[in-house]
Write a protein that binds this DNA or RNA. Structure first.
Lengths: 349, 349
DNA sequence: GATCCAGTCTGAATCGATCCAGAAGGGAGG
DNA sequence: CCTCCCTTCTGGATCGATTCAGACTGGATC
């Protein structure tokens, strides 16, 4: 077993406090004694103060937790999630904090336990689905600070995000401006049963995932403004947020009923999948995405840019040194519609 | 302040042990008492046992550390690193462990401190440069288990990796087979001074970064076999491992001296940058990469595939439940040469 | 010579749990 | 009735540090 601080103290013949000070407060003891302590410590193979014990006594850990609601390993396959993580990492390393990535079991009880057991000073909660509420309650129950990125900030919560609805609307307005009226909307798991392909959604408000709901609502807003009702829009659900699932979602024969001229996807990944599928089928529709990930530009995808790295950076900042002004606790980031070649005028019917 | 276990014990009128058992060992007390404890705990707002205190007493943390030698936020911009991380995350969530990403300061002392202060049960050390040795010594000093992925495993260390030299050689042999004799080799920061563009390297053994050294040596092997000496090879250094840096490295006029017909890059990211630059310059050379990241296929890049996700997965497995057999502690993964359109026969001179 | 102070160092309390030996109580077996 | 065992619960030791009030020393100040 590795020696402890106590062992070093005994070996040198000083009190434990003094050894502790040799590491943490060099000004509290003479240089020679400190050197002697450090030397014998090295000689004995003492690895320095135990981080866990130190954390317990000091009351803070030096790490922030990052919570993804989907499986942790999936998160890395999502380019936008990786952008977010990059930003969080930037702030964290600037601040000298570590990042604890906590895998959340699928069951609610397991997820709660995972959040309760994480040794962290606070949490960044990324893109929560409907289970987010319970997770946040658990964090709050621990009395830890947290930052949300979901689309529904509560008044006192720290939050960084975008106006999902307006952003989505801007993409849709681009299409209505080009004359599109018969379109399909595509999102990841629109309804709990995660049917792939066309789904019936009586009302946008029924969509459980808040971000998806907001984006679909934004799309709907733009079409409502030109007289196209929600019921006239085709809603497509993908099995998950992946390129393959995006392609698969538009394959069923009823997915893109004949007069359809455009597909609005809730993420770039899905949109790229749609482009793959359309190319394969030799069909040409207008397609829009959401996020503006790196692959969007080379693919010519028209999309809504949201600053992912900055989102992560600001989220971690909000956690690590929170602003005093309460109105600075919620950060609204701008989005931009980036028009590329994947969209064009609707063919005249 | 949130109540502690002690407060709950006093409120219920039982000992601390019993409350502890209510959470950790339900079979050690009657169902009714347990329920009563849990109920009052909830009522009092007790968030459950403090993870740090629990870790201290139990002697393990439930998290594994991941160490990137480059800046943590850079790691996420490197597709291969993300693949590795994905694999690590897969194993970790299967095992119920969290992942602690520890940012390493650039200075050796700071890096040592960061490793010493990380509350983890073990480390995955990803792709170490020459500073890796000191980091591993620090981990060993703490008495923690670790897994390396660098190209130089020591006999008793747990390791998962590939035969870097042979893999690189396979790419180079593909080119020699196509008749290429005058080529340039491209790597990230070949020499400490990180000059971008052509560098003079008297001997491959002088390259400090072990992985880079092995790969360059593998390239050299193949060319030596057809009578092209190390001194006849152009060595190019990129500022970092990014697409832009790859492009920038081949731009200087002396980078690709006239008879040059091919560029062998030590990573796909660099190779893609080279392709960008060549396309921009209207020049056509054969180019090979290394890793086979997702972008390689659409770009038609000939490259050496190494299984990144599996590398991460196996690394974490090796850490989380180590095999008993000592010879199973070192895992050599296979690589495959993937020939695409970025390479072709050398033009006759 | 008394007072004060700065510089060093110590001891005990504390952070918040878990663990283990053992006590108390009750039921079964002889 | 006595012994043994099982279940349920307790107390104290322990994990490995940090913290803070105070003790001690020696020198400067008045």
């Amino acid at each position: 077993m590795k020696p402890t601080l106590r062992a070093v103290a005994e070996a040198v013949g000083v009190s434990r406090s003094t050894v502790s000070n040799a590491y943490g407060r060099p000004d509290q003891l003479s240089t020679e004694l400190r050197q002697r302590i450090l030397d014998t410590a090295r000689k004995m193979g003492y690895p320095g103060p135990n981080p866990t014990a130190r954390s317990l006594r000091r009351g803070f850990v030096g790490a922030i937790g990052v919570l993804f609601t989907s499986r942790l390993s999936y998160a890395f396959t999502d380019p936008f999630a990786v952008q977010f993580l990059t930003g969080v990492a930037e702030s964290a390393e600037l601040h000298g904090s570590s990042l604890l990535l906590v895998p959340l079991p699928a069951d609610a009880a397991g997820a709660r336990k995972a959040v309760e057991n994480a040794a962290v000073d606070g949490f960044c909660v990324y893109c929560g689905g409907d289970e987010e509420g319970e997770i946040i309650d658990t964090i709050r129950g621990r009395g830890l600070p947290f930052v949300t990125t979901s689309s529904r900030p509560r008044a006192q919560d720290r939050w960084v995000g975008i106006d999902e609805r307006a952003a989505a609307r801007s993409a849709a307005e681009h299409l209505t401006g080009l004359g599109h009226r018969r379109v399909a909307l595509l999102a990841d798991s629109v309804l709990p049963d995660t049917a792939a392909g066309r789904v019936r959604v009586p009302d946008v408000a029924d969509v459980p995932h808040p971000t998806t709901r907001e984006r679909l609502a934004g799309f709907a807003d733009a079409f409502a403004a030109v007289g196209v009702a929600w019921s006239e829009l085709t809603v497509l659900s993908a099995a998950d947020n992946s390129r393959a699932a995006g392609a698969a979602a538009v394959l069923p024969p009823d997915a893109l009923p004949e007069p359809t001229t455009a597909v609005l996807a809730c993420s770039d990944v899905l949109a790229l999948g749609v482009l793959d599928a359309l190319r394969g089928a030799g069909r040409r529709l207008s397609v829009t995405g959401f996020d503006d990930i790196a692959e969007a530009a080379p693919a010519g995808l028209t999309t809504v840019l949201q600053p992912g790295v900055e989102k992560g950076r600001r989220a971690a900042e909000l956690l690590l040194d929170p602003p005093v002004a309460p109105d600075a606790q919620q950060i609204l980031l701008p989005t931009t519609l980036v028009v590329r070649t994947s969209t064009g005028p609707a063919p005249r019917s």
